[in-house]
Design a protein around this nucleic acid. Sequence first.
DNA 1: TCAAAAGTGTTCGGGTTACACCCATGC
DNA 2: GCATGGGTGTAACCCGAACACTTTTGA
Lengths: 238, 238
Amino acid sequence: MTAQAAGVSVAVSTVIFALRPSPHDGRMTVWLPLVRRIREPFDGRWALPGGPLEADEDLAASAARTLAETTLLTPQYLEQLYAFGNTDRSPGERVVSIVYWALVRSDEADVAVETENVRWFDADSVPELAFDHNLIVEYALWRLRNKLEYSHIASAFLGDTFTLSELREVHEAVLQKPLDPANFRRQIESSGQVVPTEHLKTGGRHRPARLYRYNTAEPDPSNGPLGTRQPSAPKDAS
Amino acid sequence: MTAQAAGVSVAVSTVIFALRPSPHDGRMTVWLPLVRRIREPFDGRWALPGGPLEADEDLAASAARTLAETTLLTPQYLEQLYAFGNTDRSPGERVVSIVYWALVRSDEADVAVETENVRWFDADSVPELAFDHNLIVEYALWRLRNKLEYSHIASAFLGDTFTLSELREVHEAVLQKPLDPANFRRQIESSGQVVPTEHLKTGGRHRPARLYRYNTAEPDPSNGPLGTRQPSAPKDAS
DNA sequence: TCAAAAGTGTTCGGGTTACACCCATGC
DNA sequence: GCATGGGTGTAACCCGAACACTTTTGA
């Protein structure tokens, strides 16, 4: 912990989203894990997982590392959210936080153990957090809901294959409103974002549903020239 | 500048956009000012204006300051673009660059003097730049063109009042395609982004055009909970 | 046979696009 | 008058919302 006298230190934090059933009505809602701070400032407060940026690791790699260290999760999707660097955001020190946001599959989120210092919170009712983390969570949630409507990120909450009902359930959980199954089907199918597989999902007390797969041939243009940075994929910045 | 041994240093750079007539056909196109580096690494190469982040200034303030110091410009619009922090982006040192993008009025861009070390370039044909700045410019240009279609930023290129033809000219210059005057008028008017004034603009050899004003009552929702950060009042940088 | 979800068809209305047409000014 | 851009009208088209309807399974 070599404090850089009179300098600016850099930290990387991540807002991790997963879908979990609400304890009340059982409907799927957006949740995120927070960690309890164990030192000043804001000792005892809940905060986003993160830590100082190591000199020899990329930003996204730092996000993936600190995220895994505290929550044992490996995200399906990881993207930079924003850099927060106001002078007054951390009492007594100057910290610029590069914040990422991540999506993890629901089944993996269940594996993530809750401890004394790690707990899942409903994204729409988080307590008062350390630093400016409430604003960060709010912004990340806005980006998630916004980006869901023009991108493919919904499939990051699911496994390799999924039914259109499962995909629709993700959209409904994130957007917090019911969607017409018929129109949703046509929108998704015509977008080319997913492609049907040979298999069906049976077991429900109804007609089996076709399983779809994420279409890797149709790239996500939503990040422009930057593409979508994956956690550990080494890349060149040509 | 004392190098922080084994640490990560933070810099702030800005991609500044203005519309200028092309020297060839006279049509308006997107231009940006670059500064020539006068030390290693990349000595002699063109680069984005910027500099190290001071410990007592906010990120946007740093962007506005370094931008003014090198180009004498004061932007109408300033927004964070992205944080670039790959380990290999600057040879020999670890620099995280918080990059902003800015829009300046065309008439103000004309005031900006060109010197031996400051020059305007057509945004679509910049030379090979220092660091990863080519990627940054490409991304900023993508954001500009993208955001023009769902935001009000076009008026940042113009003065307080403007005709719809002038506003359309901005859109055409940025998007590089002609727009139907009739449909453009209706789209803009129905969006509530601008509001008509009492005044007309005469002088052309045709019917006078009504002057419009940016509608401050209709806030731009395009940045969500963060709002649009304006270059905060110049806190004395000594 | 029935319930429930999968999947298809069809109508309706708002918004965009293309383009014809009139208006007001300078020369 | 005439050229030029300002400004209005309108029909065609596209796309999403709403919803009726058929299909296929488990029980």
